[in-house]
Design a binder for these strands. Structure first.
Length: 283
DNA sequence: AACCAGGACACAA
DNA sequence: TTGTGTCATGGT
């Protein structure tokens, strides 16, 4: 079949797909269209779960179940958050927000392209990259063309100018160098799955263009290391504004605070703070 | 029209 | 160790 349904409650598809963890989903005709691996996928929010449709027949849907993380016990995760006013606010505002489990290479490449870019621009860069260098995919009749995310090997074969042509600016040499390292087998992204968070983080930070923040995004969004806590300008703003409105601690101190304050599901808490700050209106 | 965006990096002090 | 300039592009 090319359709399925995942019964799940407390899953806000729109919040999840638009919260800056994945960049290839677009909303059209009351549904979300995107690409996972080599499947074109259409997802629809239902009162009692998520409906999914592909362009070609699928016999085993576990890859999609895994990507969407429909089996995680969100209630238990929310209960593990610190019981303070900021987190209660964020949880109330973002009920149903989830973390996806993405493919490591696409996630890594995407976040190399994310530095000091707004989410809309990241989406634009990645769309260009995929349509120029990604494999064309079969799409349901009447829908926009779709492409797989280009492999590291394919990007490694590009000239820097080809990548700059996708509007990624100074990020081009970083993406190219990382693609070449992976294509050459210098690092196997699959091997990080069995490592500790710190070990996997160190390996990722060895790659050009990957610092602590981008490494933590990949650890959290691709590998599911729940203790990874990416700190970007929005999360920094959340910490300052929601937790330290009076004092003005240095960023260094704020990161230390984050390291110990958010518990075993710190990564999830981070995503709630991030999305809350980005979507709430004004101050 | 300035200011800023899911930063990383080399270099200075 | 902490601070500053630089990188490229375009949204708000």
């Amino acid at each position: 079949m090319n359709e399925t349904f995942f019964p799940v409650r407390d899953y806000d598809l729109s919040a999840t797909l638009s919260s800056g963890q994945a960049f290839r989903w677009r909303f059209a005709d009351a549904a979300w269209e995107g690409v996972i691996g080599e499947y074109w996928v259409q997802l629809s929010q239902r009162p009692d779960g998520i409906a999914a449709r592909t362009a070609i027949p699928v016999t085993d849907w576990n890859w999609l179940r895994h990507y969407l993380q429909v089996d995680v016990d969100l209630g238990a995760i929310l209960l593990s958050f610190p019981d303070d006013a900021p987190m209660r606010e964020a949880v109330l505002a973002c009920r149903g927000l989830r973390l996806l489990r993405q493919e490591p290479w696409e996630c890594l490449a995407s976040f190399i392209l994310s530095s000091t870019k707004q989410i809309v621009q990241i989406q634009q860069i990645i769309a260009l990259l995929c349509e120029r260098f990604g494999k064309p995919l079969i799409v349901s009749p009447g829908h926009a063309p779709a492409f797989a995310f280009p492999t590291a090997e394919r990007l490694a074969a590009c000239a820097e100018a080809d990548l700059r042509g996708c509007k990624m600016g100074f990020r081009a040499p970083n993406l190219l160098a990382t693609a070449k390292l992976l294509a050459a087998g210098e690092l196997n992204l699959e091997s990080l799955r069995t490592r500790t968070t710190a070990e996997a983080r160190a390996e990722l930070m060895d790659l050009p263009g990957v610092g602590r923040k981008i490494a933590d995004c990949v650890l959290l969004f691709a590998y599911g290391f729940q203790d990874a806590f990416p700190v970007d300008v929005w999360v920094l703003k959340a910490l300052k504004q929601l937790y330290f409105a009076k004092r003005r601690p240095a960023d260094r101190k704020l990161r230390e605070f984050a390291d110990t304050h958010f518990g075993s599901n710190a990564g999830y808490a981070q995503q709630y703070l991030f999305h809350y700050m980005r979507t709430k209106r004004n101050p």
